[in-house]
Design a protein around this nucleic acid. Structure first.
Lengths: 339, 339
DNA sequence: CGACGCTGTCGAAGCGCTTCGATTGCGGTG
DNA sequence: CACCGCAATCGAAGCGCTTCGACAGCGTCG
């Protein structure tokens, strides 16, 4: 039942090495031979043995993907990344080994040490991530989706969240808003210093500062309906002057807006809202939220490309920040005129 | 940098085969030798080469996991399965290769044919799933999470959804409810005949029939807030006599109940609601919903166990149905007395 | 027209591991 | 005391593939 390269070679009347070269294209093979070999492969249903191949070529054609399993990351977004990574990897003839956060640094050492994978892609990176030093010592290409403090010797891909924060402020400012507020991720996300959250806030604050006026309110928020409702109440009570709101929290966006409207605030009549995150969730809110989308598919593709490309020509390095774009929907308008 | 078994053998003053036997435990080795070998492994930082091992032993110690990426499966639930599968696999010293639905039957053939994996676990199985025949011909252990029509030669693990449907009815009936309704998964889920949805409905209908009276209303429902609100409105308009409601749709449960309450119906005062699905989402609704939980972790564990155990002692076969349990929360009570 | 450089192919040497005899000392048995 | 069986170990033969060096044939150039 197991067809080997030798079987194919015999069937095609060539040597095993020729079959190998047909498959890899690393040496020129006559048109005729190539055809015969391909036919034999077809007829016999030959599939190269992945282990043997990895052994002989020291290439497994497999990528490791570390997915987060924290309760405070938005699962559908993480899943979009994961699926996009797999899809892109397959396009480049690679497979994906799934690791959980829980495996930690040891897991990385294990899969790298046993040559199971050619490169590692890590999601949900913290500013001072414990896995960074390990990744660096591993001598495998590593690509982070997210940007840590020290990016030396690593490849990082992310949305330019700092700019995303700024863009939201500028968009609101251009409409005339001066009193802004920010509803963000759960406190734990900031506490462990997750790159994207921290950077967004930095960009938001920086742009808000340039606007002048008092520092805007910033409210972290758990990913639950109840927390979002609480945030809405807090906002209306403690910062009633707010006319422009930026929300970075996929789970809270809808209930937050719903709560604001339930409290009698019109969006965007009284309060303009801009979201940062998955575009589909922003678009699904009533009213559809203007938003800076998270291009998960593109980020994932870039990450895979870097990982696979990195396999030849040295470990890839450097930070790739995708430019954010704000899609204008029906949740932003000029602020109400002062009474 | 790459330490091989020969290096370890030299360092420990034994032959490579002895090192191998220390690692595998397949032959008795003296306490003393074992210790020396272990030390050398430690000191040199040896990791067996996965490919070489797979080649020599025809065992990859890797499982393939096929995850669904349909828009109509609840992503967090799928993720819980996936993470649980990986976790359990690691406990049994296996890794997990991630395949997407999109890879389809060819993907299965590929990973099986190239000996990348020792077994395959498939989620989101349909009653007449196109992958079933492929799985059967593959001669690798295959474990399905879900139950197709023909389970010959396959191992299947699932919650007993038929019984889950019945239990909900019985629970409501015991409280005195006679007029029931069912809000289910998106229409597409039924159209492609996904096992769990179809079985739940069958159990529900069967138990409802035994209650006597007219056939209960069944409303499929997309996984959006708007759809859930529509379902609530439809229910109140077309089936106002309903006092007991069963919901199998993680995304719709909360908005559905919210809409019913917004329409002036008290839960459980006017309407009792039982959910089927992830326990955490049911518990998070206001009021917390009585529910039949989906034991994703346990199902995943069983699936992995079957897959790995199946590796020795022939392909595992047979259907394992976990008994459902209803957790009583605050969403069910006696129906209102007739006016 | 001999040397040269291609192109297309082959053979053989590994890659690092497992596993199947075979071998060597033992203590114990009859 | 010759013999047996068992525990502990070794050596060698692969597993299926890639890749390097050789080499045969052939058109070309000086």
């Amino acid at each position: 039942m197991p067809v080997s390269i030798a079987d194919v070679a015999r069937h095609a009347g060539v040597s095993p090495s020729t079959v190998s070269y047909v498959l890899s294209g690393k040496r020129s093979i006559s048109e005729d031979t190539r055809r015969r070999v391909r036919e034999s492969i077809q007829v016999l249903g030959y599939r190269p043995h992945a282990g043997a191949r990895a052994l002989a070529s020291s290439r497994s054609n497999t990528l490791a993907l570390v997915v987060p399993l924290r309760s405070d990351v938005h699962v559908p977004v993480a899943m979009r990344f994961a699926v996009s990574v797999v899809t892109r990897a397959r396009d480049l003839d690679h497979d994906v080994l799934l690791l959980t956060q829980a495996e930690g640094a040891d897991g990385l050492r294990r899969v790298a040490g046993s040559s199971m994978v050619d490169a590692i892609i890590v999601m949900d990176v913290e500013i001072d991530d414990a896995r960074i030093p390990v990744l660096r010592e591993l001598a495998l290409p590593a690509v982070l989706i997210g940007v840590p403090a020290d990016t030396d010797g690593l490849a990082c891909v992310d949305l330019d969240f700092t700019e995303a924060g700024r863009i939201c402020v500028r968009h609101l400012a251009a409409l005339g808003h001066r009193r802004l507020a920010f509803v963000g991720e759960p406190p734990a996300v900031y506490e462990r210093r997750t790159g994207f959250a921290e950077r967004t806030l930095a960009g938001f604050r920086e742009a808000a500062r340039e606007l002048g006026g008092p520092a805007p309110a910033v409210l972290p928020c758990e990913q639950t309906r109840a927390a979002a409702e609480r945030a809405a109440a807090d906002l209306l009570r403690d910062h009633p002057e707010t006319t422009g709101l930026v929300v970075q929290n996929e789970a809270a966006a809808e209930p937050l807006v719903a709560a604001l409207r339930a409290a009698g605030r019109s969006v965007p009549g009284d309060l303009s809202v801009v979201a940062i995150g998955a575009d589909d969730v922003a678009a699904a809110v009533t009213p559809a939220l203007s938003s800076v989308g998270l291009p998960a598919e593109e980020l994932a593709e870039r990450a895979v490309d870097l990982a696979v490309r990195g396999l030849d020509g040295g470990t890839p390095t450097g930070v790739t920040l995708l430019p954010p774009t704000l899609v204008d929907r029906s949740s932003t308008a000029a602020p109400p005129r002062r009474a």
